[in-house]
Design a protein around this nucleic acid. Structure first.
Lengths: 185, 185
DNA sequence: CTTATTAAACCGACCGCCCGGTCTATTATG
DNA sequence: CATAATAGACCGGGCGGTCGGTTTAATAAG
């Protein structure tokens, strides 16, 4: 059911997603959905937590295959792209965080979710021994933010979903190049 | 009135912005607003066009002060940051484009708006003589997308508006460094 | 094996509110 | 008086959320 909601949120965004859409996608009924979740908002929080977990463990798993340091850093963007190719809905964490951060009650979970993700990237960057005066967390923010922004931008200007996937891979590779160029002295 | 609408859209986003909010912010009445605009959607399109114009001419003006080539490229991120500091609402173009791109009727204007902006950045990058095999348009996409993503991300994890401004400047400087490192051989 | 009992799971018609949009009355302008 | 501009009460539809009732499944009792 969380899967169905994630797909709908990913497709329409939180505000445009109607409860009826989610109900229909889940194959259940309105009563069943509200049996498990208090509100649309709490459902969104659950989706955020679920996909966040899925995303982070997925990336971490792929990163673990590369040895620490520069090789692992080089594996970062490819891992993100692989995850995104495997399940584009997982990146709903970015859109949901954006929306949930606007509401007082859910701002903290949204921020915490993003911070956790930044921390993981910062860890990888840090292990690659960046030059003096380069804060790994700053770089991590740029990478995470840039990936999100690129996905958004390409979704807007892209033609069809297939080309979007391709364009994102292209942009991801370039972002990686920029990251490496910055870190190597 | 477009200014008022822009402010509201920037603060709440298209979907959460209520017509009553915009009416109140404009200091006019509902009748007056609908005398000038057919719908909420067309109002959003007008806001997008207005701020896009404002943003592009503003950046272009700042860029014109620097001589073409690398100096002008170096002026790009500072110009964007200056514009953003001068009027953070102007960056509502990114959020509005995202939303309007979801609707069939307005998808093209949203995409066109973003493409125009990418074109300008690509032009600047191109004039800085990037190495072989580096597509200026690809780089431009990364810069534009990254800036948008960074603004979004920092809005989420940032504490107060003042620190957001500062963090964005910091991230922007880093993004510039990455861009220069990539372009210089 | 059958039947009785119970509670969790599920259904979908329904509700009240709120929002985008309309419309008529009124005011300003010339 | 004519016209443009504005006001704000009003409306219909759609939305998130509710609630009484029904099915399902697990367990106990005979």
């Amino acid at each position: 059911m969380i899967d169905a909601a994630a797909a709908v949120f990913a497709r329409l965004g939180y505000d445009r997603a109607r409860m009826s859409d989610i109900v229909q996608a889940s194959g259940l009924s309105k009563g069943a959905v509200y049996f498990y979740f208090d509100s649309k908002e709490s459902l969104a929080v659950a989706v955020l937590a679920s996909r966040q977990e899925q995303w982070i463990t997925g990336v971490a798993q792929l990163l673990a295959a590369a040895e620490p340091g520069l090789p692992r850093l080089r594996a970062l963007l490819p891992a993100m792209l692989t995850l995104h190719r495997r399940d584009p809905d997982a990146w709903v964490i970015a859109r949901l965080s954006q929306t949930l951060a606007q509401t007082e009650a859910t701002r903290d979970v949204a921020a915490a979710s993003m911070r956790r993700w930044i921390d993981l990237v910062a860890e990888v960057i840090s292990s690659a021994d960046p030059p003096e005066g380069t804060d790994p967390r700053d770089l991590a923010r740029v990478v995470v933010g840039a990936f999100d922004g690129l996905k958004t931008l390409i979704d807007i200007v892209g033609e069809d979903p297939a080309s979007v996937q391709h364009e994102l891979a292209r942009a991801g590779a370039l972002l990686e190049r920029m990251l490496i160029a910055t870190i190597s002295r």
